[in-house]
Design a protein around this nucleic acid. Structure first.
Length: 585
RNA sequence: GUCCCCGUAGCUCAGCUGGAUAGAGCAUCUGAUUUCUAAUCAGAUGGUCGCGUGUUCGAGUCACGCCGGGGACGCCA
């Protein structure tokens, strides 16, 4: 029997063939296979209902006809039945489950199976993208964490992924910052914490400029000098950006983020001219109040709300650089798709940007890549308002990760006081940071979410610690046997799953492929989180119900195999989310 | 004012783009440890899916209208 990684894809093909054989009109039938409530089986096909509706025929006989034409080898793998108004239910037979578990036994096996989805495609993922000279704070968490998970999912499913940190390293704030830098820099403070010092300088410059128009003029002059390529200001600007980036790197290292490119806004300074010219030539833009703008007459809002692509003073803004960036990403990276992992409040901007880009590309005969705003909600405090410190400041990301790690440390120390200090520190970093990442990812990204230390680190329910704990327990089983995890000898001769808990966990494992598909297609990592949590839950049930290390070699082998595969998928899945895992905790 | 998003158990949230009797966790209650990590497991209680009308074999999901909450709206990003 041929064995597919994605069983749903296999079932859909088989159903399409059977439908044709049963005389259903070709092309009119979408199998509509999805995982189902375990009470009904493993997978269900709903497509017959829709097809029957369109054909004006009763669905049940139609479903029976399709089932009758299913090929024999599929029936070797699945028990098939028709239920209710015309659902087709599939239950994987134990032999089928065993075959899948034997076929996909390593990360490479899984990757090989999954990589068909986006093979040959190039995806640019634009995420994190903080402003230089400013601290990263909670507001920067989601883009970084979600962007990283999405990038990993895409890479795992076969895409060439270009991770691009579109730094905010250009703009009017540099005038005030440079003005203040030249007058009140504290070199010692700069040494200790460069970004804090830049922030202090910016605030000082801003205050001075607001108080005194003369200062404002001087700050503007600094900006003009910078933009004109003045060597001194350019050197300062470079120093600011270099220091910012190295501070950001500290956060990225903890979150497991590594960019392929860091092409900030400044990179596009010399590339905006083409944008002005082409938009104007193509007749897409117009002049309004001295600015170059784009209206979209067909749109209820953007017919009157313009996108400003060139300010009345002739300068570019972020709409301009975003357009220039699209051009660069299509010409230089040959992007098939560009993702923007950005706060949902910028939805209007991206809608305008995409509309404009599509018209622009259509007029100039280019083929436009898929453009997607991967939006996400706000992190809220217990009061339901955006999360802040008690004094109303933004919470620095570094402080947030530190506190998570500290809370995890207290817990590890309480639960495992006999572990060496150094190991407890290592564990708490992985648990603490992982808890922050996981709490963010497990929520549907589109909605705001309530930040709660208690929920995050309480380690009960759908949390990183619960998953890491399940994983550590599996590793412990192998360790106590003196076995390497996944040692082929340990599972030699493993037979089909037998007990209810064994069967349940095997059925869950084979659905990993579908979860990957769902999570990647929707760019929603929370589907993967939910799956991993349910898998860990099945494992915990199994762990309590069935002892793994038993005398009977056949029973032991098959249970070790289930442990090894659960470990593999938990580890692969958590890795795709950007989390690190532990030997013990 | 215009447009967008949200409203599901006491609380925090899922609900795979229209499928079967709406699911988890927390909280509350009951039980499980001579057994591979109890940071665990088994069970119970808990619902007018904001309200209404409609579309159809079928609606938490789609359409329209209300009510309530959040957000975005010309030279910031």
């Amino acid at each position: 029997m041929h064995l597919a990684f994605d069983l749903i894809g296999e079932l859909e093909q088989a159903l399409a063939k059977a439908a044709a054989a049963a005389g259903l009109e070709p092309g009119s039938f979408e199998p509509g296979v999805r995982t189902s409530d375990p009470r009904h089986g493993d997978f269900q096909a709903n497509g017959v209902l829709a097809a029957a509706k369109r054909a004006g025929k009763p669905p049940r006989p139609m479903a029976e006809a399709v089932v009758a034409h299913l090929q024999g080898d599929l029936r070797e793998g699945f028990e098939v039945s028709v239920a209710g108004p015309g659902f087709i239910n599939f239950s994987a037979r134990p032999a089928m489950l065993l075959a899948w578990l034997k076929a996909f036994r390593s990360r490479d096996d899984l990757a090989a199976g999954a990589s068909a989805a986006h093979k040959g495609e190039t995806w640019v993922v634009d995420y994190s993208s903080p402003n230089a000279a400013k601290q990263m704070h909670v507001g920067h968490l989601r883009s970084a964490v979600i962007g990283e998970a999405v990038s990993r999912l895409l890479a795992f499913t076969g895409a060439r992924v270009v991770r691009d940190n579109h730094l905010g390293d250009w703009g009017t704030q540099y005038g005030k910052l440079i003005w203040a830098y030249k007058r009140m820099i504290d070199e010692g403070a700069l040494e200790r914490d460069p970004i804090a010092e830049f922030e202090r300088l910016y605030k000082a410059g801003n205050t001075a400029a607001e108080a005194d128009p003369a200062v404002m003029d001087e700050a503007r002059a600094e900006l003009v000098k910078l933009q004109g390529g003045d060597p001194e200001n350019l050197a300062l600007w470079e120093r600011i950006n270099r220091a910012s980036l190295s501070a950001f790197q500290g956060i990225y290292d903890r979150l497991g983020i590594r960019f392929d490119e860091t092409l900030g806004e400044s990179f596009y300074n010399d590339k905006v001219g083409r944008v002005y010219a082409e938009l104007s030539e193509a007749g897409i833009s117009s002049q309004s109040d001295g600015a170059q703008v784009v209206f979209h007459p067909e749109h209820p809002r953007f017919k009157t709300q313009p996108m400003i692509v060139r300010k009345s003073d002739g300068a570019a803004n972020y709409a301009t650089t975003d357009l220039a960036t699209i051009l660069y990403r299509t010409e230089h990276f040959r992007a098939d798709c560009i993702l923007y992992v950005v706060d949902k409040r910028q939805g209007d901007h991206f809608e305008q940007l995409f509309l404009t880009a599509r018209k622009w590309y259509a007029k100039t005969g280019r083929s436009v890549p898929r453009l997607v705003h991967v939006d996400f909600g706000t992190v809220l405090g217990e009061n339901g308002k955006p999360l802040k410190t008690r004094t109303g400041d933004n919470i620095r990301l570094r402080d947030l990760l530190d506190e998570a790690t500290e809370r995890a440390y207290l817990l590890v120390t309480q639960k495992s006081p006999d572990f060496p200090e150094e190991e407890r520190r290592r564990i708490s970093e992985i648990v603490g940071v992982g808890s922050v990442q996981y709490a963010d990812l497990t929520q549907n990204r589109a909605s705001d979410y309530l930040f709660s230390w208690e929920k995050m680190i309480s380690l009960e329910g759908n949390t990183a610690a619960y998953l890491l704990y399940a994983l550590a327990r599996i590793r412990s089983i192998f360790r106590r046997q003196g076995l390497e995890c996944g040692d082929p000898a340990a599972e030699a001769g493993a037979g089909v799953p037998e007990t209810p808990a064994e069967v349940a966990i095997a059925r869950k494992l084979v659905k990993f492929a579908d979860t990957l598909r769902l999570s990647t297609e929707t760019l929603c990592p929370h589907f993967l989180c939910l799956y991993l949590y349910e898998l860990a839950g099945e494992f915990s049930t199994f762990y309590n119900a069935d002892k793994v290390i038993v005398e009977d070699p056949a029973v032991r082998a098959r249970r070790l195999m289930l442990c090894a595969r659960t470990l593999l998928i938990l580890e692969t899945g958590l890795g795709l989310l950007g989390l690190r895992t532990l030997e013990r905790m």
